[in-house]
Simulated assay, not measured.
Amino acid sequence: MEFWIRHIDGSPFKPDAERQKVIQFLEAAIERRVSTGLKIEIRTKD
Rank of each mutant, 00 (worst) to 15 (best):
M1K: 09
M1F: 15
M1A: 13
M1P: 15
E2M: 11
E2F: 13
F3K: 09
F3R: 09
W4E: 08
W4C: 09
W4D: 10
W4P: 00
I5W: 08
R6W: 07
R6N: 10
H7W: 13
H7Q: 12
H7F: 12
H7A: 09
D9T: 08
D9I: 05
D9F: 07
G10P: 02
G10D: 10
S11C: 06
S11L: 05
S11K: 09
S11W: 03
S11A: 08
P12M: 03
P12C: 06
P12A: 11
P12N: 05
F13C: 00
F13P: 06
F13L: 11
F13E: 03
K14Q: 13
K14C: 09
K14E: 11
K14I: 12
K14F: 07
P15G: 07
D16R: 08
A17S: 12
A17C: 02
A17D: 14
A17W: 10
E18L: 04
E18R: 09
R19D: 05
R19S: 10
R19E: 09
R19F: 14
Q20N: 05
K21W: 08
K21T: 04
K21F: 07
K21V: 01
V22R: 07
V22P: 00
V22Q: 02
I23M: 01
I23W: 05
I23C: 01
Q24W: 04
Q24A: 03
Q24H: 02
Q24R: 08
Q24L: 01
Q24V: 02
Q24I: 00
L26C: 06
L26Q: 04
E27F: 06
E27G: 00
E27L: 07
E27P: 00
E27N: 04
A28T: 08
A28G: 05
A28M: 01
A28N: 10
A29H: 00
A29I: 00
A29Y: 10
I30Q: 07
I30K: 06
I30A: 05
E31T: 00
R32D: 11
R32T: 04
R32L: 10
R33G: 01
R33H: 02
R33L: 03
R33M: 03
R33V: 00
V34Q: 02
S35M: 10
S35A: 04
S35W: 13
T36N: 05
T36D: 08
T36E: 12
T36F: 13
T36R: 14
T36Q: 07
G37L: 04
G37M: 04
G37C: 02
K39D: 11
K39P: 02
K39R: 15
I40D: 02
I40W: 15
E41I: 12
E41Y: 14
E41N: 11
E41P: 00
I42L: 15
I42Y: 13
I42D: 09
I42P: 09
R43N: 11
R43W: 14
T44Q: 13
T44H: 11
T44P: 04
T44K: 12
K45W: 14
K45A: 06
K45R: 13
K45F: 15
K45L: 14
K45Q: 13
D46P: 12
D46Y: 15
D46M: 12
D46S: 11
D46H: 14
D46K: 15
